[in-house]
Design a protein around this nucleic acid. Structure first.
Lengths: 244, 244
DNA sequence: AAGTGGTCTAGACCACCAT
DNA sequence: TGGTGGTCTAGACCACTTT
C-alpha cells in the first residue's frame, strides 16, 4: 500500500475498503476476503486490516460473524435506525413512511451556514409522515443541498420507500455517517397538529440532526417531530464491546 | 498475568486496571505507568495493554495525551455530561444543582424489575433542580437501591454538590457506565410546573436513564424533566475516532 | 478438516512532548 | 535527548462455524 500520504496505514485501508464497496466490488451482504487475504493483496499485515475493519464495523458499514467472515452491511440497515428511523416502539415495530412532498427552496442564512453553503443556495425540502402500526407518530423534514443531490424527485424517493440513506448511496454515492443530534420538547403548532392529528399545544419531541458523509462534509439537515405518548424514542445503542 | 479464566487477556487487564484505580493506586489526573512498563509488570505485551486501555479510554475512565502519558480521568468529568449533567446550553454553560430531598421509598413492581430487585425493596429517591446561568431548566429524580448505597443521606450528597457519579465512586465503590436512555415529550403536570416555574401543560423533555456499573448490574434509574425553550439537549459525542 | 475471525507476542519505528 | 503514545509487522495459536 502506498506510503505517499502521511495518514496511518489503517486509515488508508479504511478509505480503500470504502472505495471498493462504493465500486460495488463486494455486494450488500456478501463476504469480503479474509483479513489475511485482504492484507496480502494490499501489502499490509492482518493486524492492520483488522484495525481498519474495526473502524468500519463500529460505523456500521460492515459486520462480522465469527468463524464465517466479514460482510458489507445492507444499506437499508446502515444508519437506518440511528439516522432516519429514530422511533422504536415498545414492541419494536418498524416505522413506515408516507412521502408528503419534495420541493426546491433556497437556503436561509442559518441553514446555509450549518450546511456549509452560500446563502440562497438551492436545497431540496422533503417531508414525510411516520407511522408505527398504522398510527401516525411523527413528521420528518429533510433539507439536502442540490449540489450534492442533483435531480432529486419524488419518484426516486418513492422507489426507495423513503429510505433516504439508501437513496443517497445508490443514486449519489454519498455514504452517510452519524452527525450531531439535538433534542427539544415543543408544543405542536397548527401545521404539525393537523398533520399529526393532535391538538395544538400538545407536546412533541423535536429531533434535529446534521448528517455528514465520510469526509465530514455536512450533507443533510433534518428535523423530526415525534408523538411520544405511547412510544418513547430510543437512541441507537453505542457500539462498544461487552464487558462480560 | 494468570491464564486461569477463559476471558481474553486484554479484558483481564481491563479489570486489573480498574481494580488498581479503585484501590487508589493512581489518583485522579495522575499518570499511569507507560504501556510498556505496565505490560512488563503484568506479564503481557504492550499491544495487549494498549487494547485494554483503549476500552477504558472509550468508556471515559482514562484519557491519553500523546507523548506524555495515560491518566485517570477525574471522576467529576467521567460520565458527568453523559449521565447526570445532560443539559448543554447553546453557550455551553455548566449546569448547577439544587438538592431538593433524599428519601427512602419502596420499589414498585416495574421499578423493581428494571433494577433487578425484589418488589418492595428499599430505594433512595433523590430529587434535584437544575439551573443554567441561574435559570431553572430542569428537574431530576434518581432512584438507587439501598443495598448498593447504604446510609445515603443529604449531607453526603451535598458535600459533593450533587455529583452522583463521584459520590457512587468515592463512597460506595460503584463505577458507573452509560446505560440505556429514552426520550419523550410530555406536558408539565402541576408538580413539575410549580418546581420549574412554568405553566401546566407546557412541553417538557423527559429523559429516562438506566445506569449500570462495570459488571452490567443496574444501579441507578433516573428521570429528568427539562425545559428546552432556550437550550436544546445535546447528547454526548460518540467516542469514535476521526476519519480525517 | 479447513477456513474464518479473535487474540497475543516480540520487536520495531515514528510522532510528539518535555527537558 | 529520552520517554511516551501511536502504528505496524510476521508469525503464532485459539475459538468458532461450515463442510
Amino acid at each position: 500500500m502506498a506510503k505517499l500520504t502521511q495518514q496511518p496505514l489503517y486509515k488508508q485501508v479504511v478509505r480503500e475498503v470504502l472505495a471498493r464497496i462504493e465500486a460495488a466490488e463486494w455486494h450488500g451482504d456478501e463476504s469480503l476476503p479474509s483479513e489475511t487475504d485482504l492484507g496480502r493483496s494490499l501489502g499490509v499485515s492482518q493486524g492492520t486490516v483488522r484495525k481498519a475493519l474495526d473502524v468500519l464495523v463500529a460505523d456500521g458499514v460492515l459486520y462480522r460473524r465469527q468463524g464465517v467472515g466479514t460482510f458489507v452491511a445492507d444499506t437499508s440497515d446502515f444508519l437506518a435506525r440511528s439516522c432516519f428511523t429514530p422511533l422504536t416502539g415498545v414492541g419494536g415495530e418498524v416505522p413506515k413512511f408516507e412521502l408528503l412532498g419534495c420541493v426546491r427552496i433556497n437556503a436561509g442564512e442559518q441553514l446555509a451556514e450549518v450546511l456549509g453553503l452560500r446563502r440562497g443556495a438551492a436545497l431540496w425540502q422533503v417531508r414525510k409522515l411516520l407511522r408505527v402500526a398504522g398510527h401516525i407518530v411523527g413528521l420528518e423534514e429533510l433539507l439536502l443541498p442540490e449540489s450534492s443531490f442533483p435531480d432529486l424527485d419524488m419518484r426516486r424517493i418513492r422507489e426507495l420507500k423513503g429510505n433516504v440513506p439508501e437513496l443517497c448511496w445508490r443514486d449519489f454515492g454519498v455514504r452517510l455517517k452519524d452527525g450531531e443530534v439535538r433534542y427539544r420538547a415543543v408544543s405542536a403548532a397548527q401545521a404539525e397538529a393537523r398533520l399529526l392529528q393532535m391538538e395544538v399545544g400538545d407536546p412533541l419531541l423535536q429531533i434535529v440532526r446534521l448528517s455528514r458523509d465520510f469526509d465530514g462534509k455536512p450533507q443533510i439537515w433534518s428535523v423530526a417531530w415525534l408523538r411520544t405518548e405511547q412510544d418513547a424514542f430510543e437512541p441507537p445503542q453505542s457500539m462498544r464491546g461487552e464487558q462480560e
